[in-house]
């Protein structure tokens, strides 16, 4: 088994497509550093002056009309509550209407912790898709070229063959993810250090960029195993890509909007919950009023634990099904 695993790791590292994919991932990570550089720099004097002009215009408007805005809002809210099927659902947020603040125009001060954690979170899509596709192609290419048949005449124990390939995909992707995340983390730190904005704002331990980076790296072997299992099932890289895109578009993009109860079970939300520590999602609650239908968004939070359990169970189920199929399937 370990012998086969070593051979598969060698093959993983030697594949031209995987090398190209690794280069692409690292290049994108370098672009993320450029983005971090931009975020780390404080606004210029001209930008601050312009923002102040806009802020003062808004403040003047608020001072002249603010009370009327709030009064109008409350009046409409009260009117709709009287005719609503469920008055508790009518909330127009009138209490949140306050005077504008300069920060709303200038934006918050750069913060290494907050900004880099957000940057890494935004890279999670890349660091999920890339392992899935690279691992999927790593396995499916053997089926599409037919070399799996030759391989099985040398290593006929299919369970071992399966495990060696899936594990190789999972282990092989870890250094790639680690280097990519290290580039973003290190590059971002250098950028914020250059502008002396590292300690601009404290961040909680859970959101600290190092914790997010570690969770991202831990996520990649799991999704690589998922991708490899899909490779065994689909037996063609294009089919793996089709399954992934089909799931994202049809299930996560369309079906979830029809069936709100599915929201906490979407892949993207659970990945986000794992990487970010938790993930908010909203459902709509609507009531009929005299002026029509009134809806409000209700916020829910998906925990990091649920995200982790969801991802592990999903991967285990797909990998298990793929193993059963590979054990029984004829190899042409």
């Amino acid at each position: 088994m370990s012998r086969l695993l070593r051979v598969e790791l060698d093959r993983f590292a030697s594949r031209a497509l995987i090398r190209a994919g690794v280069v692409a991932v690292l290049v994108i990570c370098c672009f993320a550093v450029v983005s971090a550089w931009s975020s780390a720099s404080p606004p210029s004097q001209a930008e601050q002056d312009q923002a102040r002009v806009y802020y003062e215009q808004a403040l003047t408007d608020w001072e002249q009309n603010g009370e009327q805005y709030v009064a109008d809002c409350r009046a409409q809210e009260e009117a709709d509550k009287e005719t609503a099927d469920d008055p508790g659902l009518v909330d127009y947020g009138c209490d949140e209407m306050t005077a504008p603040k300069l920060q709303d125009w200038i934006g918050g001060a750069p913060s290494f912790g907050r900004d880099t954690a957000a940057l890494l979170t935004s890279l999670s899509l890349l660091l999920v898709l890339a392992p899935v596709l690279l691992a999927g192609s790593f396995v499916s290419a053997e089926f599409s070229t037919g070399s799996i048949a030759n391989w099985l005449t040398f290593a006929p124990r299919r369970v071992r063959v399966y495990l060696s390939k899936v594990l190789a995909a999972g282990l092989g992707i870890i250094p790639v993810a680690a280097v990519g995340v290290a580039i973003v983390l290190g590059g971002s730190w250098l950028a914020y250090r250059n502008f002396d904005t590292i300690n601009a704002e404290a961040s909680t331990d859970l959101d600290s960029p190092v914790a997010v980076a570690l969770r991202l790296v831990a996520l990649t072997p799991v999704v690589a195993v998922l991708g490899a299992a899909l490779g065994f099932l689909a037996r063609h890289t294009a089919a793996v890509l089709g399954i992934v895109l089909g799931w994202v578009v049809l299930v996560e993009g369309i079906l979830v909007n029809w069936v709100q109860a599915l929201r906490p079970w979407t892949l993207t939300l659970n990945i986000s919950a794992w990487v970010s520590g938790s993930a908010p999602y909203w459902t709509q609650e609507c009531t009929t009023t005299a002026s029509g239908q009134s809806c409000r968004s209700v916020e829910h939070v998906l925990s990091q634990t649920q995200g982790a359990v969801y991802l592990l169970v999903l991967t285990a189920v797909v990998a298990g099904v793929a193993l059963l199929v590979f054990r029984r399937r004829d190899v042409g």
């Binding site: 012998r3 086969l4 070593r6 051979v7 060698d10 093959r11 030697s14 594949r15 031209a16 290419a141 053997e142 070229t145 037919g146 070399s147 048949a149 030759n150 391989w151 005449t153 040398f154 290593a155 006929p156």
Partner: peptide, 30 residues
């Protein structure tokens, strides 16, 4: 299986690897 060598229909190896690399991986597998 160690006593059996087989070529089923057309030979099928990893196309982007050299002949030596292909054989080397098979040798290590057994």
């Amino acid at each position: 299986i160690g006593r059996v060598g087989a070529i089923v229909e057309q030979p099928k190896f990893f196309p982007s690897f050299s002949g030596r690399k292909n054989l080397s991986m098979l040798a290590r597998a057994i």
